[in-house]
Amino acid sequence: MPTSQQTATAYHWVMSIQTPDGLMTTRDAVIDVPEGVTRQQIFHFVATQFAEDYGQTFTILFFGLQPNTL
């Protein structure tokens, strides 16, 4: 029985946020994204990481997502 291999593409994301008390922070990372994953799913994945560290209340100032290739 043949097995299917899921193809993944490396993406670089950047997100900047500001908390209600004025703290501003920016993070970035490269993640391998399997076929079929949407930009919205990646956005929520990244925003959840910020929420775990800074709480549920913050303003997203910037979100960028691009393939990690030149």
Rank of each mutant, 00 (worst) to 15 (best):
Q5L: 00
M24C: 14
T3N: 04
Q6G: 01
F63L: 05
T19Q: 02
F58R: 08
T9F: 10
V30E: 14
N68I: 02
F58K: 09
V14S: 08
V33R: 12
T19P: 06
F43V: 12
F62R: 15
V33Q: 11
Q18D: 07
Y11T: 03
I31C: 09
N68K: 06
P2I: 02
A47D: 14
T48N: 14
T26E: 14
P34W: 06
Q40F: 09
A51P: 10
A8I: 04
V30D: 14
I17K: 02
F62P: 00
Q5H: 04
T38D: 06
Q18M: 13
T38A: 04
L23C: 03
H44Y: 04
P34I: 02
A47L: 04
Q40S: 11
F62E: 15
W13N: 05
Q66K: 13
T69P: 01
V30H: 10
Q18L: 03
T69Y: 03
M24Y: 10
M24A: 14
E52P: 01
Q40D: 15
F58N: 07
D32N: 15
T59R: 14
R39S: 06
I60L: 08
F63Q: 05
G36E: 10
A8H: 10
I60N: 11
A47R: 15
V33M: 12
T25Y: 10
M1K: 10
E35F: 06
D28P: 03
G64S: 03
E52D: 13
T26Y: 06
G55F: 02
T57A: 13
T48I: 00
L70G: 01
T59S: 10
H12A: 08
F63W: 08
I31H: 12
E35G: 03
F45P: 02
A29L: 10
R39F: 11
Q18R: 15
A51L: 00
G55V: 01
Q18G: 05
M15T: 04
F58T: 05
T38Y: 07
A29F: 11
T25F: 07
P2M: 01
M1P: 06
T25C: 10
E52K: 13
